[in-house]
Design a protein around this nucleic acid. Structure first.
Lengths: 204, 204
DNA sequence: TCCTGCCCGTGACATTTGTCACGTTCGCGG
DNA sequence: CCGCGAACGTGACAAATGTCACGGGCAGGA
């Protein structure tokens, strides 16, 4: 019988992190070696504890889970990433896989399946919800250019064209042109709608 | 030694629900008697299992946690509610307490404190984060009328004035008037900004 | 009974948004 | 070297948003 799988948990919500630790420690072949609440603490903690698998929430201070998955893939490839997220957005899934994550689990998943997902990832296998994978392929690559996405992201916060222009060091006319292009590409009625659709598709 | 506290868990995310169950079942004086994923299943489940305390997420299909807390308070007052939520919004806290909840915990709380919170609620005590309570009192009652809040809520979804008017069976002019009033009362620059600020203050 | 506020609506007008055409510069790939 | 697309910008114009004044009906409280 081999040694237990060493797990690192990264989630900014202490309650969720502690609860996940309690759940996973019920399994005798898993052991929690670290818990962090910020993305920028994961790499060091993974190194120091020799973690085999890192469970990463997407939205964390310091660095988001997708970025951290990329960092671990490059700098500590023996520590495999399993993304655990609230939003099963197809765009998140694509970006997670592109970043080098080994698995992607949404929080609707039955609790009993999480430990199995961890074991599969530890064995070097991929764990992806098939429905999400299909949806991800269907929604396709973002039609937005990098700048259009950036302007749309800032616009989503609710400012005026003038405020967006100041923040991004552009003219108002340029901002309007980018917004108009983004509205057209997403098939939306206005910038708020475009931002919502792009976010839902994982393009922001 | 008295009998264990009977707990019902209500959260639409199976993973989080299962993890919370695992965490709380580590305590010998607590026992999980039901787990539901929809707000409209809570009352029946609480009755059938004689739950002492119900842990309620806010955002659930069927009925949100705040509504359910009100229903339990009226129809099953011996089953006390403890709201467990991601967003520590002062408006949520006020509405939870007005609805009849006994406690309010955000998911940043250390996991070890959850069991203590459950025990205190079971004893008939109140559990509220003091910082959140202060913030809630500071942000005050919503300045928006019921209709203004409703128009703003629909507007936040990104539709045009025409679409909002159709959905709420109002004229476009009336919708513009309500939006303008809401923008003024929140001190925002536009409806997107107004919706964001109202949401942050718990007024939506 | 009267006053107040909410809700509804219309109309006029100023401001902002969004569209479109056009042009220049730059980087990248064939 | 050339073509193409992205990024930036201007200007004109139509459509939408937001503001404001005004008025009527209704419910609730003094």
């Amino acid at each position: 019988m081999s040694e237990p799988i060493r797990l690192l948990l990264a989630d900014d919500q202490a309650l969720v992190r502690g609860a996940l630790a309690a759940l996973l420690e019920l399994e005798t072949d898993l052991t929690i070696v670290a818990q962090v609440g910020r993305g920028d603490e994961v790499l060091d903690a993974a190194r120091e504890t020799n973690a085999h698998v890192a469970l990463l929430d997407v939205e964390m201070p310091g660095a988001d889970g997708l970025t951290v998955a990329g960092i671990l893939h490059r700098e500590l490839p023996q520590c495999r990433s399993l993304i655990v997220t609230t939003f099963g957005r197809p765009g998140y899934l694509r970006r997670a896989m592109e970043a080098g994550a080994s698995g992607f689990v949404v929080k609707d998943t039955p609790a009993a399946q999480l430990a199995d997902a961890v074991r599969r990832v530890a064995q070097g296998l991929r764990v992806v919800d098939p429905a999400l994978a299909a949806e991800s392929l269907a929604s396709g690559v973002s039609p937005l250019t990098q700048r259009e996405a950036e302007v749309l992201r800032v616009a989503a916060l609710g400012g005026t064209v003038g405020e967006i222009a100041r923040e991004l060091h552009l003219s108002q006319g340029t901002v309007r042109n980018h917004l108009s292009a983004a509205i057209g590409k997403t098939g939306a009625r206005n910038r708020a709608d475009a931002a919502a659709q792009a976010a839902a598709n994982g393009w922001l």
